[in-house]
């Protein structure tokens, strides 16, 4: 499965692989939605995302806007993610959460 969720105490680690697009967003959402509880920290690793489209952006935005959980964090943005964010002018929005890892420089 392109989405890998690791639960540990109050933290959820999400690993996304392959594409974050219209073809996968619903699946990704359904997989995650059940785990959303108050007080939970979510950390999403984007290092293996190969492709992002608008639907994917919406996914990221909606996730970021979650207020039921304690914290949402994105990390290791892949190049595809960074490009998409830049194109859509959302780099600033995701600014604090961009951590560039060496793998991302593909």
């Amino acid at each position: 499965m392109p989405i890998n969720i690791v639960l540990k105490d109050q933290s959820i680690k999400v690993n996304l692989t392959e594409e974050l697009t219209i073809y996968s967003v619903m699946e990704f959402r359904d997989a995650l939605v059940g785990h959303l509880q108050p007080g939970v920290d979510i950390s999403v690793d984007l290092s293996q995302v190969t492709e992002v489209d608008t639907a994917g952006l919406q996914w990221l935005l909606a996730l970021k806007g979650l207020n039921v959980v304690q914290r949402v964090e994105f990390c290791h943005h892949s190049k595809a993610v960074i490009d998409a964010l830049e194109l859509s002018g959302l780099s600033g929005t995701f600014d604090d959460t961009i951590v560039i890892s060496s793998e991302a420089r593909v």
Partner: peptide, 12 residues
């Protein structure tokens, strides 16, 4: 919201 969103529609 994330829970209710139909991501296949465009809201942006």
């Amino acid at each position: 919201s994330f829970e209710a969103c139909d991501f296949e529609s465009c809201f942006l």
